[in-house]
Design a protein around this nucleic acid. Structure first.
Lengths: 235, 235
DNA sequence: GCTTGAACCTCACGCCACGGGAGGTCCTAC
DNA sequence: GTAGGACCTCCCGTGGCGTGAGGTTCAAGC
């Protein structure tokens, strides 16, 4: 009566038999006794240990962390603090994903989602994470409608420039120069006119200019960038 | 020049060569061409697809979700909404863990952490999640010091009752009856005197009483519970 | 005492998204 | 022609179990 079969213990603890097998296999919660035929018999001490393991698991610790937590029970506090830090990081990560997704869902038609994503992806090759964070918070400050308007302008601008490029229009053509001016203007709006952010973006651009063709991985875009650069120079 | 080697593409995209191998293996991003000797050559279309995949992955989608998102590009919105719901659930889960951990860290000496965790674990066998939520928010309302004081009293009470039980003191003994009265009083304090919460706890207890010995998985505790029950009856 | 069905046992593969290494071939620059 | 880096395929490992397969043992009813 003071020994528990694996099935009864599973029901009592809310875990599965397989889980208890696993804990036994890895030596985390071992049944101290066996019947002559090999069936596991859990003692009250085993059961108590299982409950400790379950508690620690419910705090999100890994099995290895649980093991070390139970091996030196005086050092629970640092383990918990580390776990809390890890959870905080996770929470921030999840929140970042959530805000990205809500921004996308709020401001885009289904058709524009993929192209926007591609743009974002390419941008993340140009800019550092910090700089992107700046840009994003600026976008949040502008509000979804304004950002949506800016993005629409941007897509239109890129489409027109690509067409001129495909048509062989020289970069010095006044129409192209005007589009390049709009490109820079839009860029300024994206950075919110904030000189620091703008300078950071500019600096990132300058520093990476030489290696951009090997980093972007999207040749057509490189052509566009150079095209705009030449048009800007012709101004 | 319009074809990319796997190493160059890895550098450009920030992924590893092994990851690109993996995407190729599972048919997610396949190099459309190969050199005669078998080296992968990625075309601009492949590269664009890779960037789409990377974008969607950065939103937290699984590779399978990415695959289906790219196969029918018009249905991105429902996929994103599902992902947002999943992320919201994750965020709530992480937040719950965080609040548990901070509560533990704020209100406990290292020595009491494990026993408290065991208690929590056992309690979660007695009560439903909702009822525990009630108890927790009540605990939050009381403030950490009051809760700590209550828990300390509780541990002391349990220790004394166990000792009496081990000593063979009959449950009808006035000292045990008094301890049982304190037990009920403490229970009332845990529920904050809120009749509804108290009734819920009581109801949970009554309903599960018959099967508790098989559900708790901790025989010593069962003995204690019955001991208190008998003492309460003797009052 | 016998039967039957539930509970138990030990392998052992599968999941997900790759990491990492072994052992061999290929490409490019000097 | 040779060195060394980049590339190839194959395969095992991760965490925390789920899910069988195929065989043994237990407990209850006859």
């Amino acid at each position: 009566m003071t020994r528990w079969s694996i099935g009864d213990l599973a029901k009592a603890s809310g875990l599965t038999v397989r889980t208890l097998h696993h804990y036994d296999e890895i030596g985390l919660v071992v049944a101290s006794e066996r019947t002559p035929s090999g069936h596991r018999r859990y003692t009250p001490d085993d059961v108590r240990r299982l409950y400790q393991v379950r508690s620690l698991r419910q705090l999100g610790l890994s099995l290895e962390e649980v093991r070390s937590a139970l091996s030196r029970s005086d050092s629970l506090r640092p383990i918990f603090e580390a776990q809390l830090a890890s959870l905080t990081a996770q929470a921030q990560h999840v929140e970042a994903l959530r805000s990205r997704l809500t921004a996308l869902l709020d401001g885009h038609t289904p058709e524009s989602l993929l192209s926007t994503l591609e743009m974002m992806s390419v941008h993340e090759s140009y800019f550092t994470a910090d700089q992107l964070g700046d840009l994003r918070s600026r976008a949040a400050a502008l509000g979804p409608e304004a950002v949506e308007a800016l993005k629409a302008s941007w897509l239109e601008l890129v489409a027109r420039l690509r067409q001129h490029m495909a048509d062989g229009t020289p970069p010095s053509d006044p129409r192209v120069v005007e589009l390049a001016r709009q490109w820079d203007e839009l860029g300024a709006k994206f950075t919110g006119g904030d000189a620091a952010v703008q300078a950071a973006a500019q600096r990132s651009w300058e520093e990476n200019k030489a290696s951009i063709s090997s980093r972007i991985g999207w040749p057509a875009d490189d052509g566009l960038v150079e095209y705009v650069t030449r048009a800007r120079a012709a101004r």
